[in-house]
């Protein structure tokens, strides 16, 4: 019962993601209900972005458990403050911004405790369950992990824009909104980030021979 309600809301919402006035009203209605503590309304709002928020967090930390914790913490914070979402930026931009802040807060907390980041890979079980071509999936997953490792070697300011623009598909303008920096800064950081990544990719033999 609950799932079908939630699903129909998601479908309804995804069909009104466009910026028409009526759609805006509908989204605002969901926002209002979510602000009143309606979990289903909030889930309908964030449903289309949940995976992206998790993938964004994974790009920061690589540890799947930590990424899950960061992304869920971010989404819970978003739930608590959804009433303050005015639609000035897109919902996805707002969620990315909260996720980034959660990551930075946790990083500061970890730093103050003097703990190192734990990195582990636990994708084998998922592959075993996913069927189709496990060998190929394993190769792809390992490749993706190496790519995420490479991104982690970038300096943080470059890593952020690479994560948002290249890995999450945001425009320069949207990335600038998330990071609260000028578009020109995004351009220069992404350019430097790519140059640095090229070196890292070469060192890790991630670039094919030409």
């Amino acid at each position: 019962m609950y799932d079908s309600i939630s699903m129909s809301r998601k479908i309804e919402l995804s069909s009104v993601e466009a910026s028409s006035e009526s759609a805006q009203c509908s989204v605002q209605d969901y926002v209002k209900r979510a602000a009143d503590g309606d979990v289903a309304a909030f889930e309908a709002l964030i449903g289309p972005y949940m995976q992206r928020v998790y993938a964004f967090a994974l790009g920061f930390c690589r540890d799947t458990e930590e990424a899950m914790e960061i992304s869920q913490e971010a989404l819970i914070k978003a739930f608590r403050s959804i009433g303050s979402f005015r639609g000035d930026s897109s919902l996805s931009t707002w969620l990315y911004r909260i996720s980034r802040n959660v990551f930075l807060d946790r990083k500061r907390a970890v730093k103050s405790r003097g703990r190192d980041r734990a990195v582990h890979v636990d994708g084998m079980e998922e592959i075993a369950r996913s069927g189709s071509d496990p060998e190929q999936e394993l190769i792809e997953q390992m490749e993706n992990e190496r790519v995420r490792d490479a991104v982690l070697e970038l300096e943080p300011s470059h890593r952020e824009v690479v994560l948002l623009v290249d890995m999450q598909g945001l425009s320069y303008r949207e990335a600038a909104d998330v990071l609260d920096i000028p578009v020109g800064t995004v351009k220069s950081r992404i350019s430097r980030g790519h140059e640095a990544l090229r070196d890292v990719f070469k060192a890790k033999c991630l670039l094919r021979e030409k």
């Binding site: 995976q51 994974l58 490749e143 993706n144 991104v151 890995m167 598909g169 990544l197 990719f201």
Partner: peptide, 11 residues
């Protein structure tokens, strides 16, 4: 490669 790696499935 970045686009592919950015598309992580939810656990």
């Amino acid at each position: 490669a970045l686009a592919a790696a950015g598309d992580a499935e939810l656990p």
